[in-house]
Nucleic acid binder design. Structure first.
Lengths: 144, 144
DNA sequence: AATTGAATGCAACAGTATTGCAAAGATTTC
DNA sequence: GAAATCTTTGCAATACTGTTGCATTCAATT
């Protein structure tokens, strides 16, 4: 067995990564923790700022791995840089898990509105729904 | 009077630009026509490709002028480049005019679903709605 | 025709995303 | 436990999109 030693550490983050099928390296653990601590979505630059000497490409590829394994989801909020937020533990990154995101035009923070799922829609004839990126813009509770 | 001569040309595009308060230069007319002919939204690069020798910055500033005057609206469909599509003639670029956009993940084309307005939403406490960017991804009639 | 202001083209630059390659680390095989 | 193999990481370079400064051209006014 590959991961026995790491699992023995009984570390929550490692367990969660394993549960999603991602080998929990130290970088991955740290990036996960950064995203977990923040209650908002972060872009690549903001994550990079949380570290002293970690290369951007490493974080970039870590995030890619996370996306491929439904650890995080990406949010195009129109600010120019894609943001990332942790998926729920039982998220499968399928339709039912999609929710609306909110970008505050004052502070720039982007929040997951997990209570607001993407509604079912009747698309025009011939259009097939696969995924969606719904971003509402306005002011957040702190800035309103 | 400034625009008499141009108006006399009795050109539809010029009339439409004037109606939105944009002085109809030849570049603006051409860019408008490019967007009008396509039934899909185009990004800066795609528009540039329609011309032989027009600078990107010129088109960029033309598009900016168009946005400022509600001639076109921008669409962040997550493909990396912002796309642009003509507004309806009576569009005021306010809330009621917002609609859902559709990105085909096979052909990459983005369409305005003008019959699908952004629905009213009850946001969580403290969140104020100002604008929205809703993009549905899937396959379009041609690719389904 | 001269003057003024707006629009355009050129060039350079900034920010984000992405890749190739080599070094370091982890895992498996013998 | 050492060698071989595969994965992850760091460095460097690059691509792509968006944006701005400045000089020139073009249109409108005097």
């Amino acid at each position: 067995m590959i991961f026995i030693e790491i699992v023995k550490m009984n570390n929550d983050v490692n367990k969660k990564l394993l549960h999603k099928g991602v080998k929990p390296t130290s970088m991955r653990q740290l990036v996960y923790e950064v995203l977990d601590k923040q209650k908002k979505a972060l872009n690549l630059y903001e994550i990079e700022q949380q570290f002293d000497n970690v290369d951007r490409s490493t974080i970039f590829r870590t995030l890619k791995t996370f996306q491929d394994n439904c650890v995080i989801h990406r949010i195009d909020d129109g600010t120019g840089a894609v943001k990332y937020a942790l998926c729920d533990e039982n998220c499968t990154c399928h339709l039912g898990d999609l929710h609306i995101h909110f970008l505050c035009i004052k502070c720039g923070q982007t929040h997951c509105l997990k209570d607001m799922p993407i509604p079912k829609m009747d698309l025009p004839n011939g259009f097939l729904f696969k995924s969606a990126n719904f971003v509402v813009k306005g002011t957040c509770p702190k800035c309103s």
